[in-house]
Design a protein around this nucleic acid. Sequence first.
DNA 1: GCCCCATGTAAGCAGCGCAAACATAAAAGA
DNA 2: TCTTTTATGTTTGCGCTGCTTACATGGGGC
Lengths: 207, 207
Amino acid sequence: MPQNGTYHHGDLRVACLRAARELLEEDGSAGLSLRAVARRAGVSATAPYRHYADRDALVSAVAAEGYRELAQHLAAAHPAPSTPEDLAAVAVAYVRFALDHPALFRAMFAEPCDPTSEERVAATAVIKEYVEGIVRDAFPGADGTGALATTVWALVHGLAFLHLDGKLDASSPEVVATQVRAAVHALFTAAPGLRAAGESPEPPAAG
Amino acid sequence: MPQNGTYHHGDLRVACLRAARELLEEDGSAGLSLRAVARRAGVSATAPYRHYADRDALVSAVAAEGYRELAQHLAAAHPAPSTPEDLAAVAVAYVRFALDHPALFRAMFAEPCDPTSEERVAATAVIKEYVEGIVRDAFPGADGTGALATTVWALVHGLAFLHLDGKLDASSPEVVATQVRAAVHALFTAAPGLRAAGESPEPPAAG
DNA sequence: GCCCCATGTAAGCAGCGCAAACATAAAAGA
DNA sequence: TCTTTTATGTTTGCGCTGCTTACATGGGGC
């Protein structure tokens, strides 16, 4: 039952999500108020409370949506990365997502995470396992503790945040991509035994 | 002239800073309102506007203070790091600072940075140059572009944020420290030519 | 055909950021 | 020393916010 101008909206839940997402992209986190969401959805100020317990719940729902979109974005960059170059491409996609959706990315990561939103924690677990799966597939010889996966995630995540906060040169997408690729390559020319399958370890440049 | 119970407060500027810092530690960013700051300073609601243009200005001032404290904390961890172990100790201090002062750290990095606060941008520049100086001193053979410094900063910064957001296991300080050290060592056993002064490059484990 | 209840509305409270007009006291100048 | 200026704090008030309570509506199950 679509919104037919009657008393009931029809699908206010997703309308709120959509409106919240738009407000986030337009005005940032500060512009995301439940009242503004209600206005945009064409509904009374307190109607969203029927679907979201409070503001945090709505933000968590938007964040969860963001996690899913980020996962899709990474998968689109390379479906099954196996070489450092592949991983670098995924890393570039990660940082680009952050720069293309700054307010959404901040909502996903930069706010004190509400642990009571099981939708949200589940979504972050998906991202974490996704990254670990990528690294495990690309580096079957690595230890099984996921330490390397955590390291590469942290590196990329940190690059995203530093770029987002203007702490690094993010003047052009190419500059950012080059920086990210360099960092990933620096990490993945690392310890012996962690090289990608099919890569032959180079001898140290002793000549 | 100290606060003597008279009409004028005496040093409201630093009193606001102090109150804001306390509120941030106690209730997080959400609890930091200009009105609450004024109450805690024992002053009318709008008095802080004589010293801070708006809420952002006060937050920026607190953040700038945080940058200086972070720099001191890093220096205390190791005054002149030169080996990967030294750098790992500094990295652990960085992450620990974030976990010990979560709201302050978020105010420093996780909010859209107001570029009009020159005090703030100057303070972040100090941190950046500090990290670059450390890495340059520890790795004199590295390229002069600061790419390696950016990489290690991003890695540590990402670890801090992931731990802060509960995305990683931060159950005990030891677990966190071990994780951080492992990540830094993974990075600093990296490409030939980037090894620390005094370290002899190991041949690839071919035997 | 009737009633229940999910869904929406209306009214209201307290807190917030911020602006404008006003009050006070410390400092500066005559 | 007395006056004037200026920095600092107060009062009042507007519009916005999150959220609660009480009320209205109408579609789906009986």
